Amino acid sequence: MPPFIKTNVNDVLDSDIPDLEPSVELKGDLNDLLQAQKNQKPYKIQIVWRNVIIMGLLHVAAIYGATLCFGTAKWQTVVAAILLYVYTGLGITAGAHRLWSHRSYKAKFPLRLFLALAQTMAVQNHIYEWSRDHRVHHKYSETDADPHNAKRGFFFAHVGWLLCRKHPEVINKGKTISYDDLLRDPIVVFQRRYYIPLILICCFILPTLLPTLLWGETLWNAYFICAILRYVWTLNMTWLVNSAAHFWGRHPYDKNIHPAENYLTVYGAIGEGFHNYHHTFPWDYSTSELGWRFNLTTMFINAMAAIGQAYDLKQVSPEMIIKRKLRTGDIDTHGNYGLYNPPMMKESTSLHHRQDNDKQHQH
């Protein structure tokens, strides 16, 4: 989220962070937390009106920027905004998410620098804070400790969580997760220390100046299209992973959780919408069993691996995928999904439908 949007002063002191376990994923006292929530008094939302005003103005400015795309702006400026959206999106998806939050692969210094620059241009808070919130989201998904708990509604999961104070459980549970690995990365430490001047340069100044200098665009058009419109669009595409992908879509890997395979989000967030898979196997660098299909971020990471910049890519085996589909997936009711399925699934599904039809005819 934007750095000027603070929902509470809740940074964990570096000296208080314990050693990081091999995996931060999905070990937790969720049952105890859910039970405690039932006995709590209703939590009163505290709206932060400054955040509401800032977000409102940003979206109004983005809508104005969209009108300029069809008016006085040069076509090169519109193309530049699209390319910047893809680049900043990779800073979130391949960088803050898959690399720094989940450590699903490793990256050498030049790639980490490239992704950190893109993530800075996206202005969704520095890598340390983004990763911290995301690790808490996974470990305590859809509880009061989840920063953007989808059980509080679509709007809250999408943007409402940025417009009010954090639930106390988000702060309390966040202190139980380690972030030492992030603090050992000099790029993360540098970005965190100089974040405000960095975002002013990366997100607003450079995207405004470059179109003006390279092809003679006006500062006005460049600012509202390449800076503001591109920024707000990237924000909303990221937010859709928290909202739409927790409400609509199939659950082929785990039908007991809300995160779903949502193709609107797959396209909008350059590959991050395979959310049922991701919450089931959060350590997989590709976030999907489909490889490159509809997944620009996976294509990018594979390309970086081909030139030696990305390595130690973690991936789930086909055998594990099939077993998980059989154990908790929805393939018994919705049919096969993806590349890896139980051998007799098509035949058994067809037989199941035939038996249902026979019963209907008998009645």
Rank of each mutant, 00 (worst) to 15 (best):
F4S: 10
T7I: 08
V9Y: 13
D11G: 02
D14H: 09
D14C: 01
S15P: 00
S15N: 06
D16E: 15
I17Y: 04
L20Y: 10
L20A: 14
S23I: 15
L26C: 05
D32T: 06
Q35Y: 07
N39I: 07
Q40W: 10
W49I: 02
N51M: 09
I54N: 03
G56Q: 05
G56F: 04
I63F: 13
I63H: 01
A66G: 09
T67V: 11
F70N: 00
G71K: 10
T72S: 14
W75I: 12
V78G: 12
A80I: 13
A80Y: 15
L84D: 01
G91L: 09
G91D: 06
I92V: 11
I92H: 01
T93W: 01
W100A: 10
S101P: 04
K106E: 15
A107Y: 09
K108A: 11
P110K: 11
L111F: 14
L115H: 06
L115I: 13
A118C: 05
H126N: 15
H126W: 12
D133H: 02
R135Q: 02
S141N: 14
T143K: 03
P147D: 07
P147F: 09
N149D: 13
A150N: 04
R152L: 12
G153F: 00
F155W: 13
W161I: 06
L162K: 01
L163G: 04
C164N: 03
K166Q: 08
H167A: 11
E169S: 06
G174M: 07
L182T: 15
D185I: 08
V188S: 04
V189F: 00
R193C: 02
Y195A: 02
P197Y: 11
C202G: 00
C203L: 07
F204W: 14
T208E: 06
T212Q: 02
L213C: 10
T218S: 15
T218W: 06
F224C: 11
L229R: 10
V232I: 15
W233S: 09
M237R: 04
T238R: 01
T238N: 07
N242D: 03
S243Q: 12
S243H: 13
W248I: 12
G249M: 05
R250P: 00
I257A: 05
L264A: 13
T265F: 02
V266W: 08
G268K: 03
G268H: 08
I270H: 04
E272W: 01
H275I: 11
N276D: 00
N276A: 00
H278R: 00
H279G: 03
W283E: 06
S286V: 05
T298C: 07
M299V: 09
I307S: 13
G308E: 15
D312P: 08
Q315S: 14
P318H: 10
P318R: 05
E319C: 05
E319V: 13
E319G: 10
M320F: 03
I322T: 13
R324Q: 15
R327H: 13
R327Q: 15
I331C: 05
I331Q: 05
D332E: 15
G335D: 04
G335H: 01
G338M: 09
P343R: 02
L351D: 08
H352Q: 11
R354L: 12
D356V: 08
D358Q: 10
Q362A: 14
H363M: 14
